[in-house]
Design a protein around this nucleic acid. Structure first.
Lengths: 206, 206
DNA sequence: AACACGGTTTTCCGATAGGAAAAGGGGTTT
DNA sequence: AAACCCCTTTTCCTATCGGAAAACCGTGTT
């Protein structure tokens, strides 16, 4: 796969070679899955209905398969698409064990939110727990909701919090009450007037 | 996408239309992900570096994207390839939104632990938040650690908790302090003598 | 109604996916 | 070492992907 002269090219050459590296990555995973089963190209071709040459080229990263072919391959190998790509990630944590003591938090101020991320030193963790303080005197702009991948859990530690969620009536939560939702739904928190609020938020995936 | 006359065709026509149905399925998922964020085709095109027309055709299932483009799309949307296809199964939750009010918890007593699972009605959630009470007068048997898949986050709401973790020195946590670890590591909690303790535990994957 | 505007779909065509078949590249057997 | 055999890579060519731009479709505005 040579760098395309490409009349319609929008992708800069440096990003193109990055794409190539990633294709090769995919190819290595594919070859690993095949040879782990002790299959030849011909056998996988037979099971998946693809041509031998196609699989060969895909494994060597010189060709990018279309969705259709990947689906056939996944079926032929006997994995579903999700776990086909599951091995992309890395293992979790340096030691996989950490304690957060009072007063050792790293403060992160994003606009009018004040968040303290609890375990910044752990890599690839499945959850991101944060403790936040919402200022009573600092109302949010109700225009732009926050939206991101993953799911979100919020519990009120102190005060009263109003949760605004897209397509849902406003929810008022007192200390000890909690809420759980898909983070792709636009959302926004604010403290009720008169008293600051402290919340614990746990998000999955960043 | 008309059924190809295809000089090289190996795929029987019935399977070809099945492939088409699956492409349309992929397209619907893609459109769902985009519109859940409130983005237009142009906005996603901008974020992913793909042409508007390409995304439009992919969403309508009349074109099968190659691996490269799907990767760009996944990045643009902010999901990794694995969870890109994770939604092949079932969508999360009945509405994906739930509130847990005080006094509405379902109590689950497992041995000497008393746990209240917060959102039992949500299916397929990525996290399982629970509130637990540890009795001061009920010491645990230090022999059998608990071990399970996933990761675990614990924060102390009240009292003082001692965490025993396999291969680690004992950790004492006061209210507001927390701990994060891989649940496969054997673990066990107990309240310090003299006072009951309340904890919030969030686990991933069961 | 004509116009402008923000979004989506369609058209057109060059670059590329992907199949069939031929060409490597080890091994083992005669 | 030639003749097989099995597996992988390369070649060649058509069907398809995928980008730019034009056409299309609401929904307000003058």
């Amino acid at each position: 796969m040579q760098e395309p002269a490409h009349a319609n090219a929008t992708v800069p050459p440096e990003q193109a070679s990055r794409a190539e590296r990633e294709r090769q990555d995919f190819g290595r995973r594919l070859r690993a899955l095949r040879s782990a089963r002790g299959w030849t190209l011909a056998q996988l071709a037979d099971r998946s209905g693809l041509a031998i040459s196609t699989i060969s080229k895909a494994e060597r990263g010189i060709m990018a398969l279309t969705y259709d072919r990947m689906l056939q391959l996944a079926r032929g190998i006997g994995v579903d698409m999700a776990e086909f790509f599951a091995s992309e990630g890395e293992a979790f944590a340096p030691g996989g064990f950490a304690v957060a003591r009072l007063g050792e938090f790293r403060r992160q101020e994003t606009g009018s939110y004040v968040y303290e991320m609890l375990f910044p030193e752990i890599r690839n963790k499945a959850m991101t727990p944060m403790i936040g303080t919402l200022r009573a005197d600092c109302p949010m702009s109700f225009d732009d909701f926050v939206r991101h991948a993953g799911q979100e859990f919020l519990i009120v530690l102190d005060g009263v919090v109003t949760v605004h969620a897209e397509g849902r009536p406003t929810v008022k939560l007192r200390a000890g009450e909690s809420i759980y939702f898909d983070s792709a739904r636009g959302h926004l928190y604010s403290a009720d007037a008169g008293q600051d609020a402290r919340i614990l938020v746990v998000c999955t995936e960043s």
